[in-house]
Amino acid sequence: MIDYWPLIGIALVVLGFALKFNPMLVVTVSAIATGLIAGMDWHEVISTFGKAFNDNRIIAIVWIVLPVIGLLERFGLQQRAATLIRSLKSATAGKLLILYLIYRQITAAIGLHSTAGQAQTVRPLVAPMALAAAEKQHGELTEAEAETVKAYSAATDNVGLFFGEDIFFAIGSIVLIQQILAGYGYDLAPLHLALWAIPSAIAAFLIQSTRLLLFDRKLARRGQ
């Protein structure tokens, strides 16, 4: 006979969210209650929590990094980055983002995916620096133009990561491609797939760089 009592934990989650209690507290209490109702003793429940945290500790790094980034922003990281860019005479938004694209593709290609990203670098550093470069060269931007600069900053990070990471053969996407091709009778080594990702990465770099330079020209023509 199936024991449905452990499902009370789901009801506790729904009730806790409905009453707008602290989500972390609700989930923790519900998990403990589920374990105890299922017949686990207190020490076994705590041990299961510890094992789950240890097995997934890499995920917790994100929640450590985000507060650090928030503190850096609170104490003027964006302003310092913008000041640095304003001191460079020839810096433009397009040129700056092209340099970031090179960095993002190279680091992704060697497996260093987490050295940059939307939260880690685009919001606190890249976007403010691109805005500062655009304002230095073309004067004050409209709200729409500023949002476009931010969008290009985010898009550059996505392009660099997406087309750079497949060059690193020890990644899940390469394994997925290999398994799908194997199902159709094409037996390819991960290294071969990674090598053939290089032309795509080069093409992506050239296309995105062209878009960024055209955006620079568009900003330059707006006052004419």
Rank of each mutant, 00 (worst) to 15 (best):
Q79N: 14
I110M: 11
P128N: 10
L84Q: 09
G117S: 11
I61D: 05
T115R: 04
T115H: 14
R57Y: 08
I102W: 10
A108Q: 05
K20C: 03
E44L: 06
R57C: 03
A119I: 15
L97D: 00
S87M: 12
I102S: 12
E73L: 11
A130V: 09
G50V: 05
Q120C: 09
V122Y: 01
R74D: 12
I32D: 02
M129W: 09
G39N: 15
L112N: 03
I58H: 03
S30W: 02
V45Q: 02
D41N: 15
S30E: 00
S114M: 08
L15H: 05
S47W: 09
L101T: 06
I46V: 15
F49G: 01
I61C: 02
I37T: 08
F75W: 15
V26T: 05
R104H: 12
S47A: 12
P67V: 03
G50Y: 11
T115L: 13
I110E: 01
K20T: 13
T34R: 08
L36P: 04
V122I: 15
R104G: 10
L7P: 04
A109F: 10
S87G: 14
K51H: 14
G76R: 10
I69N: 08
R104A: 15
I32S: 10
R123A: 14
A81F: 10
R123G: 06
H113E: 13
D41I: 07
A93V: 04
V14M: 13
I85T: 12
V62M: 05
V122R: 04
W63M: 11
L112D: 00
V65W: 10
I64P: 01
R80W: 12
I85N: 02
M24D: 07
A108P: 11
V68N: 07
V29Y: 07
F49D: 00
A93F: 11
A127T: 06
G9N: 04
I102D: 07
A119S: 14
E73D: 14
T83K: 11
V13N: 00
L96P: 01
A127Q: 09
L112K: 01
G117L: 03
T83R: 09
A116L: 06
D3L: 07
V126I: 15
I58R: 06
H113Y: 14
I37F: 03
T83Y: 08
W42M: 13
Q105G: 12
S87H: 12
Q105R: 09
V65N: 02
Y100W: 13
P67F: 08
G94R: 00
P128C: 07
K89W: 08
K51F: 11
L97N: 04
L96S: 05
G16S: 03
A93S: 15
L125S: 00
W5R: 14
Y100C: 05
L101C: 08
L72Q: 10
S114Y: 12
L12V: 13
D41G: 07
T121C: 04
V126E: 06
V62G: 03
I37H: 02
A119N: 14
N22P: 02
L97G: 02
T92Y: 04
R86Y: 13
S87P: 04
